[in-house]
Design a protein around this nucleic acid. Structure first.
Lengths: 230, 230
DNA sequence: CAGACATTTGGAACATGTTCCAATTTTCGA
DNA sequence: TCGAAAATTGGAACATGTTCCAAATGTCTG
């Protein structure tokens, strides 16, 4: 029944599975290129299929919906969590903002591309509506952030009485809200970085010890100054 | 050229304008009723038009797009800013959370309705993509929040060094992000209130004076306790 | 090698948002 | 009251996401 062996890392190696995998990535690449070249326009399933050299029904077999294809493009572009561990900053709070910078860089360096992606991901016509990331991806990312927050607690910069889990949720909600405004055009690309950083700093300072609060106060004022030049 | 006189409050009184106004509200009402009765299903322009007793093209003449119709439904339901001024709480911070409760109540009391509305508003297919509110509405609401924040500064609960305008933006982004998660199903309706309140409290505490921080700390722990029962 | 199986393929079909158009109705100004 | 202007109307049309189907293609198992 199960064609082909399954190797250690879960990748199937049968010829059938391999061909399927190749079709998958051809579709993802086609979608990515179309967005890169034409933005929103021509990002239709018929176009994607034509570009990928497959039939219109194939993306539906492999992904299920247009939204799922776009989500695959999104996650394909972001090897975010991988670089997450390599943050060098001295204290945990600075590492948090370095991580934030890391994440923001994608959007700032390629705004048109990611804006299109985001807008497409917001379309929740289908019943499933799997959020803005694959469950596994989401969990990995959340765990990484939680680790940073817990480190900050261990270093005595954040109050241990405030749940790192809930704090992570708050930061993530804040980021999503700002991205939403950005995708809709209410926040400019230049303001995106400082705006999210300010929100992070405020929320973190709300959970900070005296030592942490001092560090964050400086950052808040810096973000404010950046945003003042508008 | 301009048919009919224009009365003081901007409402036109000519027969033509009156008929148009009535068609407008018939369409909005039809859309509202359809959402109430069937949720997402059957919320098509053809259905709305049929229910409103107008032709399919009329909503496009009067509103421009389906999204604009839904936005009109949304704003029709929320006389939010009106009740905003009548908040009684002793200190400005409590008034902020009362206002927050006021706003949340809509969503919590009628989750299906508002979830559908939100999901429809997220669809930014058209080029215009006017955000989540009419510009005038948005500005009125922002001004009301700003006033509350400035009152808190005047009462010595929030630091005056932190811009009330930017703080308002942060709170609003946070609310939008949480609503987004809620609309997509990642946050339950029961958790919606405490989750947004927690985010507000954290961000406000990040901008608070010592006096304000103490008040907010208590609220943060209360929200946390509410969310722990999951 | 041959048959069983899994997938892809074309193609049609459906509902949808949106636009265009000519014909019609309704209102307004003189 | 009459003609001009401003809508609405009905209908068709288009592109889209999505689903369905029978036929074809390729792959695995015995």
């Amino acid at each position: 029944m199960n064609g082909g062996a399954i190797s250690a890392d879960g990748a199937e190696s049968g010829r059938r599975a391999q061909a399927k995998e190749e079709r998958r990535s051809r579709i993802v690449r086609a979608a990515r290129d179309l967005i890169r070249e034409t933005g929103d326009t021509d990002l239709s399933m018929r176009m994607i299929a034509k570009r990928a050299g497959v039939s219109l029904t194939t993306p539906y077999n492999l992904f299920g919906s247009k939204r799922a294809v776009v989500l695959a493009v999104f996650e394909d572009e972001r090897d975010f969590v991988v670089r997450f561990g390599r943050l060098q900053a001295a204290n945990a709070l600075d590492r948090i903002f370095d991580a934030h910078d890391l994440g923001m860089r994608y959007f700032i360096e390629d705004p048109d591309f990611y804006r299109t992606l985001w807008k497409a991901l917001l379309n929740t016509q289908g019943a499933d509506s799997t959020g803005l990331a694959t469950p596994e991806r989401l969990e990995r990312s959340r765990a990484a952030w939680r680790a940073l927050l817990e480190a900050a607690q261990d270093e005595g910069l954040l109050e241990p009485a405030i749940s790192a889990d809930l704090l992570e949720r708050s930061l993530s909600s804040f980021a999503n809200g700002t991205m939403l405004s950005w995708a809709m055009g209410a926040v400019s690309t230049e303001a995106l970085g400082p705006t999210t950083a300010l929100g992070y700093a405020l929320a973190l300072r709300g959970a900070a010890t005296a030592a942490g609060a001092a560090l964050l106060q400086a950052r808040i004022l810096r973000c404010q100054a950046q945003l003042a030049g508008d």
